[in-house]
Design a binder for these strands. Structure first.
Lengths: 222, 222
DNA sequence: CCAATAGTTTAGGTTTGCCTAAATAAAAAT
DNA sequence: ATTTTTATTTAGGCAAACCTAAACTATTGG
């Protein structure tokens, strides 16, 4: 099934809205896509006819299994590109979205597979959102800033919220980057600084200020 | 000036055809773009109205200065992506074109600048065609296989025509890759093998068979 | 319960980028 | 120099993806 850019955008938007509400309304989607409700209705007819979503007029719609599968693949492409832009080309995490929005529509399975491999199969994008793997599976986790992480809980760095030269320098010195696995060992009451374990190296102490700017994800307990 | 994907494709195609003939005909462009002549006429009206080309009905057309500038930038994007796909993602040189055809339309100056920097400002794509720099300048040169290169003439490797594991292994062993500067020192009559100088390392001897599969460009004498 | 309002769909229009078929201009052949 | 052939343009249409305005449902509040 080959989709137009527009159809892909619709699927992705519905996918995101479905995280909140099981069934999505015309107006909600119109707002999400910055389009008029009438345009949404047009597209819903088309997509439901293609079997990508269930649509009952006046009652909203939600993705079919097929539609969801396609949506997840689009999300995968989007987040892989975000990771690429951030990690390889040095974009800051707040600049990646609009460009990834375009890159996600490039049609080439080989491109995405090779890119994934080249990036070393990252599991989270620069915003801390999970990247689905080739089969559509993605890590579930809880996102919070490092100063909120419970002690002795392993977590992966997914984003740094401040992009100043000074902070990046400090992070580089301490060998902390996206994907780095960390664990809080101790919190010192006096200045709320943290002693953390950084894999694979060793221990470091970081200030509360820094910790608040580092976001991590830890895996939900199974 | 922002162009649609289609408009960009037209400009690029005209640019390429202009290498052969100063003025391009409707039919030639229709063939190049695999479209009907009537569609070409439609687009020529639009592009000439935008000032991107000079068009006299029944007499063909050619790019204006503005149109040429835009075309060169599209070519730049295309070739940078080809280089990326080949060098970073491990695509073979004959697979890169269709994917680059899509990637070239991504709109983001920053993306291209960063990509160029990330790739270390390459001057030739995997087909041996020159990549325009940010200002539109590109190296002019003559392309031939290494066994045809005149002795003591420095040249840059731009492509290897065979992609077998065995050959890539050999090339890697001899430290020859795209961009490597080489120079023929001596040709042995017996088996037509070549002694070549490889920068920055040193001398190597390569078989005629290998030399025929390595393509180089040398700068035209000024 | 029924009217007002909020949400959704239908009807009809626009632009872009294509197409076919017919008309017209230029080039080639007799 | 006509006629024939080839090349190009015009005219009219179509599909995708939007839009506005009008019509229609569903919900909600009195």
């Amino acid at each position: 099934m080959k989709l137009s850019h527009s159809e892909e955008n619709y699927l992705k938007a519905i996918f995101h809205l479905q995280m909140e509400t099981a069934t999505v309304s015309t107006n909600a989607l119109a707002q999400e896509l910055d389009a008029r409700p009438a345009s949404i209705t047009d597209m819903m007819k088309k997509l439901s006819q293609k079997g990508l979503l269930h649509y009952k007029p006046y009652y909203g719609f939600y993705l079919s299994a097929e539609g969801k599968k396609l949506a997840v693949h689009i999300v995968r492409r989007h987040r892989l590109w975000e990771y690429f832009l951030s990690e390889k080309l040095g974009f800051s995490w707040n600049e990646v979205h609009p460009v990834a929005e375009q890159l996600e529509h490039i049609r080439s399975k080989k491109l995405i597979d090779k890119l994934d491999e080249y990036l070393n199969f990252p599991q989270f994008d620069p915003h801390g959102d999970p990247i689905p793997d080739g089969k559509g599976k993605m890590k579930k986790g809880t996102k919070l800033s490092l100063d909120q992480l419970l002690p002795n809980q392993k977590a992966a760095v997914v984003r740094v919220s401040n992009q100043s030269e000074e902070m990046l320098e400090l992070l580089q010195h301490k060998n902390i980057g996206i994907g780095t696995v960390v664990e809080v060992r101790k919190q010192f009451e006096f200045d709320r600084s943290l002693q953390i374990k950084i894999e694979p190296k060793g221990l470091e102490t970081i200030s509360e200020q820094l910790a608040k700017n580092i976001f991590v994800i830890y895996e939900a307990v199974k």
